[in-house]
Amino acid sequence: MIRTVAETGSTNADLLAEAGQGASEGVWLRAERQTGGRGRAGRAWTSPPGNLYASTIVRLRPGDPPAPTLALVAAVAAEGVASAYAGPGHLTIKWPNDIVAGPAKLAGILLERADDAVVIGIGVNLAHHPSDLDRPAISIAALSGAAPDPHPFLVELADAFAHWLGRWRGEGLGPVRARWLARAHPIGSALRTGGREGLFEGLTDEGALLIRYADGTNSIIRAGDVFLL
Protein backbone atom coordinates (compact mmCIF):
# COMPACT_ATOMS: atom_id res chain seq x y z
CA MET A 1 0.00 0.00 0.00
CA ILE A 2 1.32 3.44 -0.98
CA ARG A 3 0.11 6.54 0.82
CA THR A 4 1.07 10.02 -0.38
CA VAL A 5 1.07 13.25 1.61
CA ALA A 6 1.72 16.74 0.29
CA GLU A 7 4.28 17.59 2.95
CA THR A 8 5.81 16.16 6.09
CA GLY A 9 8.93 16.55 8.14
CA SER A 10 10.35 13.11 7.40
CA THR A 11 8.73 10.00 5.98
CA ASN A 12 11.14 7.91 8.05
CA ALA A 13 10.12 9.65 11.27
CA ASP A 14 6.45 9.21 10.41
CA LEU A 15 6.79 5.48 9.74
CA LEU A 16 8.90 4.94 12.84
CA ALA A 17 6.03 6.36 14.84
CA GLU A 18 3.51 4.24 12.95
CA ALA A 19 5.66 1.14 13.42
CA GLY A 20 5.51 1.70 17.16
CA GLN A 21 1.72 1.66 16.85
CA GLY A 22 1.70 -1.65 14.99
CA ALA A 23 1.91 -0.64 11.31
CA SER A 24 2.51 -3.69 9.17
CA GLU A 25 5.33 -4.59 6.80
CA GLY A 26 4.94 -3.41 3.23
CA VAL A 27 3.33 -0.02 3.78
CA TRP A 28 4.93 2.86 1.90
CA LEU A 29 4.70 6.57 2.69
CA ARG A 30 5.64 9.14 0.05
CA ALA A 31 5.84 12.88 0.57
CA GLU A 32 5.73 15.36 -2.27
CA ARG A 33 7.95 17.54 -0.12
CA GLN A 34 9.89 17.02 3.11
CA THR A 35 10.84 19.80 5.49
CA GLY A 36 13.14 17.73 7.71
CA GLY A 37 14.62 15.05 5.46
CA ARG A 38 17.78 13.39 6.75
CA GLY A 39 20.67 11.50 5.26
CA ARG A 40 23.43 9.53 6.92
CA ALA A 41 24.86 10.93 10.16
CA GLY A 42 21.94 13.33 10.48
CA ARG A 43 22.81 15.34 7.37
CA ALA A 44 20.00 17.42 5.89
CA TRP A 45 18.51 16.06 2.66
CA THR A 46 17.27 18.76 0.30
CA SER A 47 13.67 17.99 -0.62
CA PRO A 48 12.15 20.06 -3.45
CA PRO A 49 8.95 18.82 -5.11
CA GLY A 50 9.50 16.53 -8.09
CA ASN A 51 11.94 14.14 -6.45
CA LEU A 52 11.15 10.91 -4.61
CA TYR A 53 10.95 10.87 -0.81
CA ALA A 54 9.54 7.59 0.45
CA SER A 55 9.86 5.09 3.28
CA THR A 56 8.69 1.57 4.00
CA ILE A 57 8.62 -0.87 6.92
CA VAL A 58 10.17 -4.32 7.19
CA ARG A 59 9.23 -6.45 10.18
CA LEU A 60 12.15 -8.71 11.11
CA ARG A 61 11.38 -12.40 11.48
CA PRO A 62 13.32 -15.25 13.08
CA GLY A 63 15.81 -16.58 10.56
CA ASP A 64 16.08 -13.36 8.55
CA PRO A 65 19.60 -12.27 7.50
CA PRO A 66 21.14 -9.48 9.63
CA ALA A 67 19.03 -6.32 9.58
CA PRO A 68 21.82 -4.02 8.30
CA THR A 69 21.95 -6.03 5.06
CA LEU A 70 18.55 -4.59 4.17
CA ALA A 71 20.65 -1.65 2.94
CA LEU A 72 21.87 -3.91 0.13
CA VAL A 73 18.30 -5.01 -0.64
CA ALA A 74 17.17 -1.41 -0.97
CA ALA A 75 20.21 -0.51 -3.06
CA VAL A 76 19.74 -3.20 -5.70
CA ALA A 77 16.03 -2.42 -5.95
CA ALA A 78 16.60 1.33 -6.30
CA GLU A 79 19.45 0.96 -8.78
CA GLY A 80 17.43 -1.33 -11.02
CA VAL A 81 14.48 1.03 -11.26
CA ALA A 82 16.57 4.19 -11.53
CA SER A 83 18.73 2.71 -14.30
CA ALA A 84 15.64 1.94 -16.36
CA TYR A 85 14.95 5.69 -16.44
CA ALA A 86 18.50 7.07 -16.45
CA GLY A 87 19.64 4.87 -19.32
CA PRO A 88 22.17 2.05 -19.49
CA GLY A 89 25.69 2.55 -18.27
CA HIS A 90 25.08 5.61 -16.11
CA LEU A 91 24.54 4.27 -12.61
CA THR A 92 26.44 2.16 -10.11
CA ILE A 93 26.08 1.37 -6.41
CA LYS A 94 28.58 2.77 -3.91
CA TRP A 95 28.88 0.96 -0.60
CA PRO A 96 26.66 0.39 1.15
CA ASN A 97 23.66 1.87 -0.61
CA ASP A 98 24.26 5.12 -2.50
CA ILE A 99 23.30 5.18 -6.17
CA VAL A 100 25.81 7.26 -8.12
CA ALA A 101 26.65 8.36 -11.66
CA GLY A 102 30.43 8.61 -11.60
CA PRO A 103 31.20 10.59 -8.44
CA ALA A 104 27.76 12.25 -8.33
CA LYS A 105 25.08 10.98 -5.97
CA LEU A 106 21.64 10.25 -7.41
CA ALA A 107 19.95 8.43 -4.52
CA GLY A 108 20.46 7.80 -0.83
CA ILE A 109 19.03 5.23 1.57
CA LEU A 110 18.60 5.51 5.32
CA LEU A 111 17.79 2.62 7.67
CA GLU A 112 16.42 3.19 11.16
CA ARG A 113 15.30 0.48 13.57
CA ALA A 114 12.77 0.32 16.38
CA ASP A 115 12.42 -3.11 18.00
CA ASP A 116 11.53 -5.58 15.22
CA ALA A 117 10.72 -2.85 12.69
CA VAL A 118 13.26 -1.48 10.22
CA VAL A 119 12.18 1.67 8.44
CA ILE A 120 13.93 2.16 5.11
CA GLY A 121 13.89 5.64 3.59
CA ILE A 122 14.80 6.12 -0.06
CA GLY A 123 15.40 9.50 -1.67
CA VAL A 124 15.99 9.74 -5.41
CA ASN A 125 16.79 12.89 -7.38
CA LEU A 126 14.29 12.56 -10.21
CA ALA A 127 13.80 16.16 -11.38
CA HIS A 128 16.29 18.20 -9.35
CA HIS A 129 19.67 17.87 -7.67
CA PRO A 130 21.46 20.24 -5.29
CA SER A 131 24.52 22.13 -6.51
CA ASP A 132 25.70 23.63 -3.21
CA LEU A 133 26.92 20.49 -1.42
CA ASP A 134 30.45 19.44 -0.47
CA ARG A 135 30.11 16.54 -2.93
CA PRO A 136 28.56 16.33 -6.43
CA ALA A 137 24.96 15.30 -7.03
CA ILE A 138 22.95 14.41 -10.14
CA SER A 139 19.33 13.76 -11.15
CA ILE A 140 17.65 11.43 -13.61
CA ALA A 141 16.45 14.52 -15.50
CA ALA A 142 20.05 15.68 -15.92
CA LEU A 143 21.12 12.24 -17.16
CA SER A 144 18.23 11.44 -19.48
CA GLY A 145 16.58 14.76 -20.27
CA ALA A 146 13.28 13.78 -18.65
CA ALA A 147 12.12 13.42 -15.04
CA PRO A 148 9.91 10.44 -14.19
CA ASP A 149 6.74 11.06 -12.22
CA PRO A 150 7.43 10.16 -8.57
CA HIS A 151 4.33 8.02 -8.03
CA PRO A 152 4.77 5.56 -10.92
CA PHE A 153 8.47 5.44 -10.08
CA LEU A 154 7.59 4.41 -6.52
CA VAL A 155 5.13 1.77 -7.74
CA GLU A 156 7.98 0.16 -9.67
CA LEU A 157 10.38 0.59 -6.74
CA ALA A 158 7.94 -1.02 -4.29
CA ASP A 159 7.59 -4.03 -6.62
CA ALA A 160 11.37 -4.33 -7.04
CA PHE A 161 11.93 -4.02 -3.30
CA ALA A 162 9.34 -6.72 -2.57
CA HIS A 163 11.09 -9.01 -5.08
CA TRP A 164 14.53 -8.59 -3.55
CA LEU A 165 13.18 -8.69 0.00
CA GLY A 166 11.58 -12.05 -0.83
CA ARG A 167 14.88 -13.39 -2.12
CA TRP A 168 16.78 -12.00 0.91
CA ARG A 169 14.31 -13.67 3.23
CA GLY A 170 13.89 -16.92 1.30
CA GLU A 171 17.39 -17.52 -0.10
CA GLY A 172 19.65 -15.55 2.22
CA LEU A 173 21.98 -12.69 1.42
CA GLY A 174 23.80 -14.49 -1.40
CA PRO A 175 21.63 -13.47 -4.40
CA VAL A 176 21.35 -9.88 -3.15
CA ARG A 177 25.12 -9.67 -2.59
CA ALA A 178 25.76 -11.04 -6.09
CA ARG A 179 23.43 -8.49 -7.67
CA TRP A 180 24.98 -5.69 -5.61
CA LEU A 181 28.48 -6.62 -6.79
CA ALA A 182 27.31 -6.83 -10.40
CA ARG A 183 25.98 -3.27 -10.22
CA ALA A 184 28.74 -1.74 -8.07
CA HIS A 185 31.85 0.13 -9.19
CA PRO A 186 34.54 -2.29 -10.41
CA ILE A 187 36.89 -4.27 -8.20
CA GLY A 188 40.04 -2.18 -7.83
CA SER A 189 38.21 1.16 -7.71
CA ALA A 190 40.02 3.69 -5.53
CA LEU A 191 38.17 4.57 -2.30
CA ARG A 192 38.76 6.71 0.75
CA THR A 193 37.33 5.96 4.18
CA GLY A 194 38.40 6.90 7.66
CA GLY A 195 41.09 9.19 6.26
CA ARG A 196 42.82 6.36 4.35
CA GLU A 197 42.84 5.53 0.66
CA GLY A 198 42.65 2.01 -0.70
CA LEU A 199 41.20 -0.23 -3.39
CA PHE A 200 37.77 -1.85 -3.45
CA GLU A 201 38.13 -5.61 -2.99
CA GLY A 202 34.45 -6.57 -2.86
CA LEU A 203 32.15 -7.59 -0.01
CA THR A 204 32.40 -10.17 2.72
CA ASP A 205 29.76 -12.90 2.83
CA GLU A 206 27.96 -10.71 5.41
CA GLY A 207 27.94 -7.64 3.14
CA ALA A 208 30.75 -5.65 4.78
CA LEU A 209 33.15 -3.68 2.58
CA LEU A 210 36.63 -5.08 1.81
CA ILE A 211 39.44 -2.57 1.17
CA ARG A 212 43.10 -3.26 0.33
CA TYR A 213 45.57 -0.52 1.28
CA ALA A 214 48.83 0.41 -0.43
CA ASP A 215 50.89 -1.30 2.27
CA GLY A 216 49.22 -4.60 1.41
CA THR A 217 46.97 -4.76 4.45
CA ASN A 218 43.25 -5.42 4.16
CA SER A 219 40.41 -3.95 6.17
CA ILE A 220 36.76 -4.85 6.69
CA ILE A 221 34.49 -1.79 6.93
CA ARG A 222 31.10 -2.30 8.52
CA ALA A 223 30.07 1.35 8.97
CA GLY A 224 31.23 4.79 7.92
CA ASP A 225 31.44 7.12 4.95
CA VAL A 226 33.14 5.88 1.80
CA PHE A 227 34.19 8.15 -1.07
CA LEU A 228 35.02 7.13 -4.64
CA LEU A 229 38.25 8.69 -5.88
Rank of each mutant, 00 (worst) to 15 (best):
L199R: 15
N12A: 12
G202T: 07
I109N: 09
P130S: 13
G39E: 14
P152L: 03
A223Y: 02
R183L: 13
G121R: 00
W168Q: 10
V124Y: 12
A147R: 12
R59W: 05
Y213E: 06
I2C: 07
H163C: 04
G145R: 05
S47C: 09
N51I: 02
S219P: 01
S189M: 09
V5M: 12
R135L: 05
A208P: 02
I122S: 08
G80P: 01
D225Q: 09
V118H: 13
I220H: 02
P148D: 14
G36T: 05
E32C: 04
V58S: 13
A74Y: 02
L111G: 05
P148Q: 14
E112W: 07
A184D: 12
R183S: 15
W168A: 08
T11M: 06
L154N: 10
H128W: 15
G195A: 05
R33P: 00
A190R: 13
R196Y: 05
R113P: 00
D134E: 14
G36S: 15
L106M: 11
N51Y: 07
A54L: 02
W28H: 00
A127V: 05
P49Q: 14
G216Q: 03
G123L: 04
P62S: 03
G50K: 13
A107P: 10
G207R: 09
E156H: 09
A41V: 02
I187C: 00
P136T: 00
A23Q: 11
D98I: 10
L60D: 11
R222V: 01
S189W: 00
G170D: 11
G50Y: 10
T8D: 10
E171S: 14
G174L: 06
S55K: 09
G20Q: 13
L111H: 07
P66L: 09
S189K: 00
G198F: 01
L173Y: 05
H151A: 11
P130T: 02
D149N: 11
I120W: 08
V176R: 04
W28F: 13
S55A: 15
T193W: 03
R38K: 14
A75P: 06
F200N: 04
S219D: 14
G166Y: 04
K94R: 14
L70K: 04
A162T: 09
L110R: 01
P103G: 14
L154D: 07
G87N: 07
W164I: 01
A117L: 02
T56D: 13
D205F: 01
P48W: 07
T69P: 01
A54M: 04
M1K: 10
A41D: 15
D159V: 10
A86D: 10
T46I: 05
G174V: 06
G188Y: 05
A208W: 00
P62Y: 04
S83Y: 04
